[in-house]
Nucleic acid binder design. Structure first.
Lengths: 86, 86, 86, 86
DNA sequence: CTGCCATTTTACCGGC
DNA sequence: GCCGGTAAAATGGCAG
């Protein structure tokens, strides 16, 4: 048997399939890391332009929290309605 | 040397100190787990009394989020003031 | 009717009972958070004493697991590593 | 002056520039979140195919670490286990 | 038994 | 260059 191929069964598991899945995940994680890097670059750019990074992060967090809060309110309303058979 | 005591130095580390720290942590984690269990009991009690546990969780979460949101707003305000030397 | 008391029935819900349950939960969650804080303090203390916190966490996790589970995990990991030629 | 445009200077801050930076960051964070979602999908697929997700994560972590770090961790863990008679 | 949610843990980023 | 804090990921537990 060749060494690289046909390792479909190693120790009772589908090795090729496993390898494929893991490589897909690793690829996506690389892209994700790249985006993280892009984001860092923008913060650096902002800092160079004289903005306060900490404040920027706080603003972004706040915008996210407001959205989450709104969603939660809607969810709560829906759940109440459901609970009360409205 | 006895086996249980005087293991102050095992593989170059202060074994007794390490053991002590770990046991303290484990003790606190037990207490923490017990509280978690108590909380679960109250939810069970609430359910028995006819309340909707999911709604209760949503309410508690919302109360926490509101508090966090308020804190965040205050923090942001403070940070702005600081940034602007007010 | 006074406003704060006797709101036993609001929209068909035993409001007082609900409020009581929620407050009990929130109280317990505070205590739980306090214990979490204590635990963090001990880890900080351990770190100051020169111990590796990450390894300590691993040790505590191991002590929580029973031998059978530990062996099972180890075996699976070896199998996967073999399948991937690691 | 119109209200939406030309707010280049608000309280001494280049508001437009700030808004632009924040929106770019938020856009990238959305993409990042989408990738995270894709990754979760693959793990779900792997699980359906009978693989152990937890072990897969461990494998991916191992592949990310270099040999030296891996050995160092392993050595420390052994040392601590010995110190605690595990 | 599966999926969801909360908690815990890890890794990153900014400040000193 | 290191430390501390903050945000993201991952694991474990609970409900349905």
């Amino acid at each position: 048997m060749s060494e690289e191929n046909n390792n479909s069964e190693v120790g009772g598991i589908a090795a090729d399939r496993l390898r494929s899945l893991i490589e897909r995940i690793e690829r996506l994680e690389e892209e994700k890391a790249a985006l993280g890097s892009d984001i860092r670059d923008i913060y650096a750019e902002a800092k160079s332009a004289g903005f306060d990074v900490k404040i920027m992060r706080a603003i972004i967090k706040l915008r996210k929290m407001n959205a989450a809060d709104r969603d939660e309110q809607e969810f709560l309303l829906e759940t109440y309605k459901k609970a009360l058979d409205i």
